[in-house]
Structures are given as structure tokens and as C-alpha cells.
């Protein structure tokens, strides 16, 4: 199955939903989209891999590139994945130690605090940790 990419925004997070196979052939398309999102100003990225059927080392390399780029920009980069066969690939390579991997998009929104501040966000939600001054 071809790679399909869909972008959405929740508050200050940019969510990239990936569907299909990420391999040596399709990974450049993912890399291109990540670069574009960063150029467009995204600083808090959530890459949702829930619809990914296949991921290889080339795909891992692109995700690592995204993580490094966001770190360099003091942003955040989280992965959403609850499929054992994909999670296994992160474990085998030890990359589960450097990525934030959560099972749902909601969890991703909850674990990644917004370091940029968000005074105008409604205060009641407990899903997002309180933002400290910065």
C-alpha cells in the first residue's frame, strides 16, 4: 500500500497521520513532508503511526531526522503507535530509548507540555499539564 500523509492541528501541536508502508521507496515522501512542516513553522510535532502497516530502517532514519530537527529548534516530537509489530522495531534498534512513544494521539497531547506558553488556552483541562512561566 502506498504511503498517505494527512496533516492536522490541535492547539499548537501539528499532527501528521501516516498511513501505509514506510520503506526505502516511500520514506523520501515522509521526509519531504516533515521538512515542509518545520519550514511552515511547526515546532510541536506528533507523528501518528497508527495506520502504518510496515516500517523499515529507512523510515526509522527519517523519524530520527525529524526528532533531531525538532530538538535543534527546542521543539517537541512524539510518536503515536500501539501496534506491537511496529513497536518491536523500535525496541530491537534501541530507538525506543530516544523517542517519546505513546499509544494514542490524546496521550501525545497530554505528555508533551507546551514550552512556548499558552495563556489564552482554557485552564480546566487536566489532560495537558499546566504550563509554567517561560
Amino acid at each position: 500500500m502506498e504511503l498517505s500523509l494527512q496533516t492536522g492541528t490541535v492547539a499548537d501541536r501539528t499532527i501528521l497521520r501516516v498511513t501505509g508502508e514506510i520503506d526505502v521507496y516511500t520514506a523520501p515522501k515522509l521526509r519531504q513532508r516533515l521538512v515542509q512542516l518545520v519550514e511552515d513553522g511547526a515546532r510541536h510535532l506528533v507523528v501518528d503511526l497508527s495506520g502504518v502497516e510496515f516500517l523499515d530502517s529507512t523510515g526509522l532514519g527519517v523519524l530520527v531526522g525529524g526528532l533531531k530537527r525538532m530538538r535543534a529548534l527546542s521543539g517537541s516530537f512524539a510518536l503515536v503507535c500501539d501496534q506491537e509489530r511496529i513497536l518491536k522495531i523500535f525496541r530491537i534498534t534501541g530507538l525506543d530509548r530516544i523517542f517519546t512513544i505513546v499509544p494514542t494521539e490524546q496521550a501525545a497531547l497530554a505528555v508533551e507540555p507546551d514550552p512556548g506558553g499558552s495563556e489564552d488556552r482554557p485552564d480546566g483541562g487536566h489532560a495537558v499539564p499546566p504550563v509554567t512561566d517561560r
Binding site: 523499515d56 530502517s57 532514519g61 530520527v64 531526522g65
Partner: peptide, 20 residues
């Protein structure tokens, strides 16, 4: 580099193969 060079990808592929 922000996006790893091909040599890094080859190394990562080999690490994955060995672990798998």
C-alpha cells in the same frame, strides 16, 4: 545532519537485521 546520511541508514538496517 538533521536527516541521517545513507551510510547511517545502512548501519541502522544492519542493526535491525541482526536483532531480528
Amino acid at each position: 545532519t538533521s536527516f541521517p546520511a545513507p551510510s547511517v541508514a545502512v548501519g541502522m538496517g544492519l542493526a535491525l537485521l541482526t536483532g531480528l
